[in-house]
Design a protein around this nucleic acid. Sequence first.
DNA 1: TGTATATTCAACCATCTAGTTGATAAGCCT
DNA 2: AGGCTTATCAACTAGATGGTTGAATATACA
Lengths: 112, 112
Amino acid sequence: MDTNQLSATFAALADPTRRAILARLAEGEATVNELADPLPLTLQAVSKHLKVLEQAGLISRGRTAQWRPCRLEPVPLREATHWLERYRQFWDGSFDRLSAHLQEIQKGNAHG
Amino acid sequence: MDTNQLSATFAALADPTRRAILARLAEGEATVNELADPLPLTLQAVSKHLKVLEQAGLISRGRTAQWRPCRLEPVPLREATHWLERYRQFWDGSFDRLSAHLQEIQKGNAHG
DNA sequence: TGTATATTCAACCATCTAGTTGATAAGCCT
DNA sequence: AGGCTTATCAACTAGATGGTTGAATATACA
């Protein structure tokens, strides 16, 4: 996958406010106000966080009257998980997978 | 897990240079010079990246003569993966797990 | 002792980030 | 039309980030 996309995803996930927003969206769609309500931030700050999440592809937004409902988008989360899977050999104790993983790494799709 | 630790991990992973370093370390220990060699950066810049990775707990460093060999540490990668697992329901098509995941989320260990 | 190698520290700089306040835009409702 | 709600845009600020160059530290080796 695209390196920049992966960087954007991890950068987006690095902020606890944005992770809180994603956790909320895991329960279903929400408007900007609903997302901002439990957070100790101005609406504008939350709006900025949503922009970051949207540009990273982690959320998408509808448009109903003056509301812009946000919903979780799975693809970047899947890609991030996929990237991390490469390192699973280091902690899951199953060294059967080791050589397969190393081969995949050395195939050239190395540091995504 | 600790929110700050998770933030540090994702922030560290957000940089492609640092991901390249981790990919190299997945093949085994390496010194700072070995890590810097393929990178279009000064040694000092690489040293800074290693400091970030070390503070995030993603690497640890030995000390042999004037060399400070780096090695991959699995725990933060495991924790990051574990955090992402919570969202697996959104892409893996197995909706059997959905309710279990939602329950876990609502238990209160929500937005880590 | 003196030099080469490996690595870090310090200072500096440009850019990005996360927040603020205030103004603006878009859509409903009377 | 006018007012309320929802949300974004614009400008600004403080602090973090990622890079540089130059100096310092630590260890080996002749």
